[in-house]
Write a protein that binds this DNA or RNA. Structure first.
Lengths: 211, 211
DNA sequence: GTAGCCTAAATTGGCGCCAATTTTGGATAC
DNA sequence: GTATCCAAAATTGGCGCCAATTTAGGCTAC
């Protein structure tokens, strides 16, 4: 029984890129802001080689999730109020801008898919891990954005969302807010189904700001 | 005399990161779309070591300026009509969104600075290299965006702008369009000075679309 | 003459070692 | 008892080698 679990973990750490593993641990709050990421530790933790660790750290530094101090090492970025506010503002600009297109493009089957994803999110709130919840949320928003018809924009928003590394711990902690997010998902779908673009815009704005 | 020039070039290639050097050559059109970037060539071209080349290529692949094909190498991305269109759309969304804030925040001294930068661009059109022109353009737009008050947004737009790697060759070729850009810069400043946010929005839209 | 295969050259990419720098702990002097 | 300096341990990061894979060229067979 324990072997099965071990195999899954092993398979996961073999298959997925080390960069993603470190990224998820930062996003999940396992690696707290300010933590120094020593190469030897990561090497052992993720069962990988030195060059792999260094490539991962360099990529995360490019994404500005960790900071690189020459001859000192890499550490997880401290939460920055100004940056968080600015990123939220950018997200609002981008995600409200395509609200109209989303409403126009959405077919009945798209609305069904969104409803399913929103319900899946609700279920993960009840009995799912933090990571599963995070991914369910991502899946919903991704499908929503794809309706905007601009694939480049979908990638960009997904990328930007990761820049608020300190987000998961500080912003997802209260159960009330998570449940509120779940309700908002359904309200957004309602607005799309009703063809009300402006209401969708307002909902998206509130959804981003409440975080 | 020749030694002085050589020293400057040497100093430049020692100081600046290899990533930036390759990036500039792609943006300048020296390395054309589709070109295979062989590690040995880059090693010799930029007088650097193998690991440095590989880190640069990995970073550019992350930025999606080059594509990585496992066991085959890295090659400069081919121009992609759809992507270029989508990136333009994103730029329009972002840059028009902060037009209002720019008009509000702009002080007389800011307008003077912008005017100087716009004139510098005009001079580079007459007697400057392609790279100098590119940088003069970047400097003008950067100072314009900073007035928006969202530094994260400034970085983001700068980053996005680089994603249309094929841009420089195909889009900057006609002298008429470059001169048109110069005139638009001044018209944008006029709109800011007059406090007309909506006119600025329309000018920004046209400025991006004409490329 | 052409198509397919096989061999050799070239290129990528993984891995580990060693030098340079920093940090920490202890010892000594005040 | 505290501060400063020195030395040793640890950590980062540059560099080069070698194995694995791919590609190109030539030879052979049909």
């Amino acid at each position: 029984m324990a072997d099965v679990v071990m195999d899954q973990q092993q398979a996961a750490s073999d298959t997925r890129d080390v960069t993603d593993l470190v990224l998820q641990d930062i996003l999940a709050g396992v690696l707290l802001p300010g933590t120094w990421l020593k190469q030897i530790d990561l090497e052992r933790r993720y069962k990988c080689t030195r060059p792999e660790v260094r490539r991962a750290l360099d990529r995360l530094a490019q994404k500005r999730l960790v900071e690189h101090v020459p001859n000192r090492g890499y550490h997880v970025y401290e939460p920055d109020g100004r940056r968080a506010r600015e990123v939220s503002e950018i997200r609002i600009i981008l995600e409200t801008a395509i609200a109209g297109t989303i409403v126009q493009n959405a077919l009945p089957e798209d609305i069904d898919t969104l409803r399913t994803l929103a319900e899946h999110f609700d279920q993960m709130v009840l009995n799912g891990t933090m990571l599963e919840l995070y991914e369910a949320n991502l899946a919903f928003h991704r499908h929503l954005l794809v309706l905007g018809g601009n694939l480049e924009l979908v990638d960009l928003i997904t990328e930007i969302r990761q820049r608020t590394s300190s987000a998961p711990v500080s912003q997802w902690r209260t159960r009330a807010r998570i449940e509120q997010s779940g309700r908002q998902h359904h309200m957004m779908i309602d607005a799309i189904a009703a063809g009300e673009a402006e209401r969708l815009q307002e909902l998206v704005r509130q959804h981003i700001l409440q975080h």
